[in-house]
């Protein structure tokens, strides 16, 4: 249709064939517009209105919902919690993944393929199943926590208020170390052989090689993995939401911002406010991911 017209008028700059590129991209973009762009637009629209409780209908409130979110203690409680979670969990997970990737790549392990496969295995386990399994293991009436307490006389309570966030850190780490390990490992395999030979000729030991060649070569992969992990942490939902069924008094409905947005919509029918919370979280996530990317790129230059 219009692409033919365009093709004629732009012939001087783009050949007809190049415009064919659009027909490969168009189907993706059409669905993308429907499930990414339209909901973003709709959420922004919703966030500018407020439902009338008594009269029905809606009124335009401008940024009223946003100022409410910024002064909402329930929102900040969850936001601070995911920040704390992120600050602790992401370094542990990526550190373990990096160590495992370097160990497997070092050539000093017996049966490295077995290690690689087994460590990757949890990635193939649905998050829901991982949480159900760990939820049972954490149980103090039956489950491994009960067995350990019974055997050693300890009083471990992984699902108590004090420990539940740590328990969630453990579940998420268990699930995603393997995935990140694989990203790092794949990047390590692209390091050219001559670099190692040169290092060996210069008399560099194994540790020296790790710090002078391998880790610098991994910088791009580390930045990518960090960004994806940050995005994942901000979205924290499945783990606390499923564990909540086991310990409803420990995990509240605004435990993470995402749970808050979910419960506002599906528990409270406060769609406008829920959309605002979702937007604020999306913007915060994008800003932090962007800053990490900038820092990572700058350091790489």
């Amino acid at each position: 249709m219009s692409s033919a017209v365009q093709a004629v008028s732009h012939r001087r700059w783009w050949s007809n064939r190049d415009l064919r590129g659009w027909s490969f991209v168009a189907p993706f973009l059409a669905v993308f517009a429907l499930v990414f762009l339209a909901p973003i637009g709709y959420a922004i629209y919703l966030s500018l209105y407020r439902e009338q409780a008594f009269f029905g209908g809606k009124t335009f409130v401008g940024f009223g919902n946003y100022t409410d979110v910024f002064s909402d203690g329930k929102f900040w409680e969850g936001a601070v919690r995911v920040l704390l979670f992120l600050a602790v969990q992401v370094p542990i997970m990526l550190g373990l993944a990096l160590a495992a990737a370097l160990a497997i790549d070092s050539g000093r392990l017996r049966a490295p393929r077995v290690f690689r496969l087994v460590i990757f295995l949890p990635y193939a386990v649905p998050g829901v199943v991982a949480v159900l399994m760990w939820g049972y293991l954490y149980g103090t009436s039956f489950g491994l926590a009960a067995d350990i307490n019974h055997l050693l006389g300890t009083a471990l309570q992984p699902l108590s208020g004090r420990w539940v966030l740590t328990s969630i850190v453990n579940i998420v780490t268990w699930e995603f170390v393997g995935y990140n390990m694989l990203i790092f490992y794949s990047a390590l395999r692209t390091v050219p052989e001559d670099l190692y030979e040169a290092a060996a000729l210069d008399g560099a030991g194994a540790l020296r090689t790790v710090f002078s060649i391998k880790i610098p070569a991994l910088r791009g992969a580390i930045v990518i993995a960090t960004i994806f992990s940050i995005i994942g942490s901000f979205q924290l939902f499945n783990e606390p939401n499923i564990l909540r069924n086991l310990v409803p008094n420990v995990i509240n409905t605004n435990y993470t911002p995402n749970m808050y947005a979910y419960n506002l919509s599906f528990g409270g029918q406060q769609y406008n406010y829920s959309a605002t919370v979702a937007i604020v979280m999306g913007v915060l996530t994008a800003i932090i991911a962007y800053v990490v990317q900038l820092r990572g790129s700058r350091d790489a230059l």
């Binding site: 909901p39 959420a43 995005i231 979205q235 919509s265 829920s274 959309a275 979702a278 979280m281 996530t285």
Partner: peptide, 20 residues
């Protein structure tokens, strides 16, 4: 646009997508 979309948490979109 697509790289920007990677940074958007899918769950942030879930509620508006549901309403739509």
């Amino acid at each position: 646009v697509v790289l920007g979309a990677i940074a958007i948490p899918p769950t942030a979109l879930a509620v508006p997508t549901f309403l739509m």
